[in-house]
């Protein structure tokens, strides 16, 4: 057992516990805080996988902006502890859990059967090769169209979010 293995198991258990916390806690604010913890722990997993830039972006975008927005919106609503946090119906609930478990098992089985042919003969990503500079070069040469398209998407989203929240009944109703 080397250091990476131990770290992976600790982080994996933490991630599973926190993400279960997101789904299981009845109070939505606790859900959001658990989500933040999940994001931060995932960032550390990315550090393990030699992706420090992605880890940093995960911290900035997810933990620092998206989940903070969630928490802010929930504080604006001033939600109480919910009595009926989960959907009704024992049979459908069982069906949902069973189908989710079935899906998970299916994915795991597929992974177990197929990874050897995917990975065989390839090398592990090396730290020098994974520098942010190379990532940026790739992003701005091979993927430049997707990058531009994302820029337009973000502009659309900004305009859309403003127009949605300004309609009658929005936060700035006049």
């Amino acid at each position: 057992m080397d250091m990476t293995t131990i770290l992976f198991y600790i982080l994996a258990i933490a991630i599973v516990v926190f993400s279960l916390g997101v789904v299981m806690t009845a109070n939505p604010i606790f859900s959001a805080l658990f989500l933040a913890l999940t994001m931060v722990t995932l960032a550390f997993v990315y550090f393990l996988l030699n992706a420090p830039f992605i880890a940093g972006v995960q911290l900035i975008v997810y933990a620092g902006a998206v989940v903070v927005l969630f928490v802010m919106v929930m504080m604006l609503f001033d939600l109480k502890q919910e009595k009926e946090a989960f959907t009704k119906g024992k049979f459908t609930g069982f069906l949902k859990i069973a189908s989710a478990g079935w899906l998970c098992g299916l994915i795991a089985g597929a992974i177990y059967m197929s990874t050897e042919m995917v990975v065989s003969g390839n090398q592990i990503l090396d730290v020098n090769k994974a520098s942010t500079k190379i990532l940026a070069k790739e992003l701005f040469s091979n993927y430049v169209f997707a990058f531009e398209a994302l820029g337009i998407l973000l502009l659309l989203i900004a305009v859309g979010a403003v127009s949605i929240s300004r309609i009658k009944g929005g936060t700035h109703a006049k």
Partner: peptide
Amino acid sequence: LILSAIIFTIGMMGVLMRKNILV
């Protein structure tokens, strides 16, 4: 990959089982 499958499934359960739109 299995860890990612577990996270994905837990997220899916959240979408299926919860009533709160934010959750």
